[in-house]
Amino acid sequence: MSEELTLAGLFYRASNGWDYFNLAIPPEDAITDPHERELCRAMLLRALALLGASEKAQLDHVMPDLYGWIQEQITAVENAVRAADKEHGRDWTPTWDARTDSFQILDSSGVPVADGVQPGTAGLIAANAPRLVLLRCAADRKQLKLHAPQPDGTGFPDGFQCRTCSEDGGDGYQYLVPFPCPTIRAVAEGYGWVEKH
């Protein structure tokens, strides 16, 4: 992208006089409706594409790498789980400890993972034993692979669709589901992502 352009929120400002007015797109703070902001953002990106701005630079600023972010979150969880796995194995079981009138979580060797916990906490810890968490991470990675972004064929640098949700309707039309699709958004939410409106 030209040195004359600098990113200002979701919108670009040019120091050479080519600005919001020239593109007929109002400044970011003047748009309060989220749908309208997204529409203006898309119009601006298309204008930049037509003016020959660098495709990679546009992608870097336009589409947050939600796909990559999810992969990083899954990897962080897997690393934490593998560390616990080295200490206590993959299977944990809650058991009642009559001496202390509380639950303890035992690993497959009978070594306590946690002592003196209440029933709800014991169930939560056991439900997040390394084997089960790794299974959930593997399932999330499968969802990522199934719903990976791919170019949507429009030729615009921000034009991505979900490879699974988008389909040929059999009637001569291609039904595009933009990336990120609802499935990717749901997986991301499971790792704490919140969509900004």
Score class of each variant (00 low, 15 high):
Ser108Lys: 12
Val133Ile: 09
Asn128Ser: 14
Val117Gly: 10
His88Thr: 02
Leu132Val: 01
Pro94Leu: 01
Ala126Arg: 06
Asp115Phe: 08
Ser108Gly: 09
Gln104Tyr: 01
Phe103Thr: 00
Asp91Ile: 12
Trp96His: 10
Ile125Met: 11
Arg136Thr: 11
Ala114Asn: 10
Ser108Met: 08
Thr100His: 12
Thr93Arg: 10
Pro130Asp: 04
Ser109His: 12
Gly120Phe: 02
Phe103Met: 08
Trp96Phe: 13
Trp96Ala: 07
Ala114Ser: 13
Gly123Leu: 10
Cys137Ser: 15
Asp115Arg: 15
Leu132Phe: 09
Val133Leu: 04
Ala122Asn: 02
Pro119Ser: 07
Gln104Met: 14
Leu132Gly: 07
Thr95Pro: 00
Ile105Arg: 07
Gly120Lys: 04
Asp101Pro: 01
Leu124Phe: 14
Gln118Leu: 14
Gly110Thr: 02
Asp115Leu: 14
Thr95Asp: 11
Ser102Met: 11
Ala127His: 12
Ile105Gly: 06
Asp91Phe: 14
Val111Ala: 09
Pro112Phe: 02
Asp97His: 01
Ser108Trp: 07
Ala127Phe: 00
Gln104Asn: 05
Leu132Glu: 11
Ala122Lys: 01
Ile105Val: 11
Pro112Gln: 04
Asn128Tyr: 05
Ser102Asn: 13
Ile105His: 08
Ser109Met: 12
Thr93Asn: 09
Asp115Glu: 15
Ala126Gln: 08
Leu106Cys: 11
Gly110Val: 02
Asp115Ile: 14
Asp107Thr: 09
Thr93Pro: 02
Ile125Leu: 10
Ala126Val: 10
Thr93His: 08
Pro130His: 05
Val133Met: 03
Asn128Asp: 11
Arg136Val: 01
Val133Glu: 03
Ser108Ala: 15
Arg131Ala: 15
Cys137Ala: 15
Leu135Phe: 06
Ser109Lys: 15
Gly123His: 05
Leu124Glu: 15
Ala127Pro: 04
Thr95Ser: 11
